[in-house]
Simulated scan of single mutants.
Amino acid sequence: MRLSELSELSGVSTATIKYYLRERLLPPGRHVTATQSEYNENHLRRLRLVRAMIQVGRIPVSTAREVLAHVDDDSLGLTMRLGAATWALPQLPETPADDPAAVDAKREVERLLTELEWDSAREIGDLSPVYRSLVTSIATLNRLGYSVPTAELLLYARQMEQIAVYEMDQLEDLPKGTPQVEMAVASQVLCDPLLLSLRRLALEVETARRYGIA
C-alpha cells in the first residue's frame, strides 16, 4: 500500500506518519520509485502500537523508540524481548535501596514471591524495574500507614496471574516473534488504564449494592 492508503486505513495523517518515519518509530517502506515507498500490514500494526504508546500511554518519543528497539531485537529469545521492552516502559520513581522502608518492603516482596512460587521474578530481582516498582509501591504504602497485609497482596497477585495467563494465551495465536512482542507491549499500555477503570467501576457498583445509590 502507498502512504496515502496507510494513512486512510490507520486514521493517522500522512504528516504524522512521515514524522514517525523520521523518528524511526516506523520502519521505512520498500522503495518503488525515487519518491515513493510501499508499506504493508506490518507497518499498519506498528503504527497502531506507536499511537497506543504516544496517545494512551503518554510515552515520550525517545522512550517509545527505545521500547521498539527491544521489540525488534530478534537476537534475543521471546522472554528476553518481552522483558526488555516492558522494562523500557515508564516505571514508578524508585525509593533509594538503603531507605529503611524499602529494605522492609523488599523483604515483604521476597516473601510474597516465595509464597506465589514466582521463582523467575525472585531470580531476576533488582535487575527488573518492575520488581523495583513493586518494592517502591509497598514501601510508600507502609510509610504512609496504609500497609497491605500479605494475604491481600496474595489475593491481588493471584488475580493478576490469571490475567497474565489469559493474555499470554492470546499471544499464542499470533505469529511468533515481533507480532507477539508488539501485542504484549500494546496490551500493557492499553490494558493498564482499562483494568484501573474496571476496578474503580467495580468499587462503585459494590458501594451502591451495600449502601444504595442515594
Results as ranks from 00 to 15, higher is better:
L21W: 04
T114E: 14
L21A: 08
A151M: 06
V61H: 01
E108M: 11
L47Y: 05
L195N: 09
Q162S: 12
R58C: 08
V32N: 12
L76V: 00
V165Y: 07
V56W: 03
L198G: 11
S187E: 09
V189R: 11
T63N: 04
I17P: 11
A84L: 09
D126H: 07
P129K: 05
W87K: 05
E5H: 10
W87G: 10
L9T: 04
A208Y: 06
P28K: 04
S13D: 09
E123T: 08
A208Q: 14
V135W: 02
L190V: 08
T95Y: 05
L3K: 05
G177D: 13
R30F: 05
S137K: 10
L190G: 11
L76W: 04
L174M: 09
M160E: 15
S7M: 01
L194N: 07
Q188F: 05
R46A: 05
A34Q: 15
V189D: 06
T140F: 02
G145H: 05
A85V: 03
Q36W: 10
P28T: 02
R30Y: 05
L9M: 10
L113W: 00
D73G: 10
D119S: 13
R30W: 07
T140M: 11
R24C: 06
R209F: 03
W87I: 00
L144V: 04
L194K: 07
M53Y: 01
S133C: 05
L21F: 04
L196M: 12
L113F: 02
L153T: 04
G57H: 02
A85T: 03
A97G: 09
A102V: 02
Y20P: 12
V56I: 13
L171H: 00
L154Q: 08
Y146T: 11
L134D: 01
A164D: 14
L153G: 01
T150Y: 00
E110C: 04
P60G: 04
P193I: 00
S37W: 02
R132E: 02
R24I: 00
K176C: 10
S128I: 00
P179G: 10
E23M: 10
E8Q: 14
V148M: 13
E182M: 11
Q188L: 09
A102R: 05
T114S: 14
L82H: 12
A52E: 10
V71C: 03
H70W: 13
E108V: 01
G145Y: 04
A85C: 11
V56F: 03
R22D: 12
L82N: 14
L127M: 12
R111P: 01
E23K: 12
Q55P: 01
L155F: 11
M160S: 15
R158Q: 13
T86W: 08
R45D: 14
K106V: 06
I17Q: 13
V12Q: 08
Y39L: 11
M53D: 04
V67E: 01
R199D: 12
A84S: 13
L44M: 07
P149W: 01
L9F: 05
L144D: 15
P96A: 07
P179L: 01
P27E: 15
A151T: 13
V109T: 06
E117Q: 15
L26Q: 10
A214Q: 15
D126E: 14
D74S: 11
E38H: 08
Y146K: 14
Y211N: 15
G83E: 14
P175M: 02
D74F: 00
L194E: 12
